[in-house]
Design a protein around this nucleic acid. Structure first.
Length: 423
DNA sequence: ATGTGC
């Protein structure tokens, strides 16, 4: 081998204002010891994941590790400027205009070009048909995914974001596709990684690239269906994936850069969102800071494990309280478990995370955004969900679950009233 | 994270 763990550079970007869990640092060092690893970086949003830490980047030579990228291959952010004026709108008005934007897209919302792209992705990814991909296209998903309308709160560098326009930030990924790709590889090859030249590595990378393309198309469709509901056009500001493995050169060697919840610092402007009750930061990476593996934090980072959130929050807050934030912004989330799991209290302070990056000289601030409305999950299984115009179901009744994203058409035999694809 | 799992 020639290299040992002693040769692997492990670096953590943090300061004493940022919460760092020992378990996450432990995972960072364990992962840094995998065969072929040359460098590991923990960003300030570092937190424990399933075996591998989140908020980290790893550079390896000769081997690559699908399990390290995780199941949500291609997960990332897309930021848009809308035509909406902040002072002419409100959280409740926006929520009403949006209605339900969850579930399968209506057929007319998927263009022939998009269908052709999905056909190509399906062929490259192998595991799903094009129509199966259509079924999850434009859906946000669960976990920490969201689509958020934001107002510009501070401008540090003029001329980049227009402070007079509402912005839309989409955080989503490759849904079932990336997950199926990872599962197939773990079933076949376990967690030992893949030798760079092998057929298995070639196959994984082809599928991985298809999942990146699908995730990007998915985010664009989420944004588009939101824009349509709000009757606005969109101007793309930036689009970035933070879960991937890419060919990379570091320290004079060609290898693979794994980003697991790490924003690329070598692709222009970035956005680092906080929790639904916190700011999002638009930042300009400082060129040439390769010691952080050309990577940045991808969010605030979890402070509480998902399993702990309900127990900690339920005695202190009602659901209604948790569906609003300190900014007066509103949260649309028909999944009760997610209301707890994604509460602001469960996350680190994103301003401190970003301050760490600024102090380390990795980024300069461009603008700060503040949430107006955070869309997490629509209510698809409600029998009376799509009554009279504009009436939206109260949270609580329906059990969001397996059929959530299949409430359209004939898939489950449960045809929604009115024949509309959703709600 | 997840057509989530029996």
């Amino acid at each position: 081998m020639g290299h040992s763990l002693l040769d692997t550079r492990v670096r953590v970007f943090a300061n004493d204002r940022v919460w760092m869990e020992d378990a996450a640092l432990q995972q960072l060092h364990t992962t840094a010891g995998l065969a072929g690893m040359r460098a590991a970086v923990g960003l300030p949003d570092l937190h424990p994941g399933r075996g591998y830490p989140v908020g980290a980047a790893f550079f390896s030579v000769g081997r690559l590790y699908p399990a390290l990228v995780g199941g949500d291959i291609g997960c990332g952010m897309a930021l848009y400027e809308t035509e909406l004026r902040p002072h002419k709108t409100s959280a409740s008005r926006l929520a009403q205009a949006l209605g339900c934007i969850d579930g399968r897209l209506p057929d007319h919302a998927v263009s022939p070009e998009a269908r052709a792209a999905l056909h190509d992705i399906a062929q490259r990814a192998e595991l799903f048909t094009a129509d199966e991909l259509v079924a999850s296209l434009g859906t946000i998903g669960g976990g920490n995914h969201f689509a958020e309308l934001q107002v510009v709160d501070q401008v540090h560098e003029p001329g980049v974001v227009d402070a007079k326009r509402v912005h839309l930030l989409v955080h989503s990924g490759s849904r079932g596709l990336g997950s199926a790709i990872l599962r197939a590889h773990i079933d076949g090859y376990n967690h030992g990684g893949l030798a760079a030249g092998d057929e298995a590595a070639r196959q994984y990378l082809a599928q991985h690239d298809a999942a990146l393309a699908f995730a990007e198309l998915n985010r664009a469709h989420i944004a588009q269906r939101m824009a349509q509901a709000l009757r606005t056009d969109l101007r793309p500001v930036l689009a970035l994936s933070h879960n991937h493995v890419l060919p990379h050169v570091w320290g004079g060697e060609a290898g693979f850069l794994h980003r697991k919840g790490a924003t690329p610092a070598d692709q222009g402007l970035v956005v680092i969102p906080g929790s639904r009750g916190d700011h999002s930061h638009v930042l300009r990476p400082v060129a040439g800071r390769h010691e952080a593996l050309d990577s940045l934090a991808h969010g605030a980072g979890r402070k509480w494990a998902r399993a702990d959130c309900r127990g900690r929050l339920k005695p202190r807050f009602s659901l209604t309280e948790l569906l609003q934030t300190r900014f007066g912004s509103a949260v649309v989330c028909a999944d009760k478990a997610l209301v707890y799991e994604e509460a602001p209290q469960a996350y680190k302070d994103v301003d401190a995370v970003v301050a760490t990056l600024i102090e380390a000289g990795l980024v300069v601030p461009v603008a700060r955004l503040r949430p107006l409305l955070t869309y997490k999950k629509g209510a698809l299984d409600q029998p009376d969900a799509e009554d009279e115009a504009g009436r939206r179901p109260r949270d609580g009744r329906g059990r969001p679950g397996k059929a959530s994203n299949h409430a359209s058409g004939q898939v489950s035999g449960k045809t929604p009233r009115g024949g509309l694809p959703c709600c």
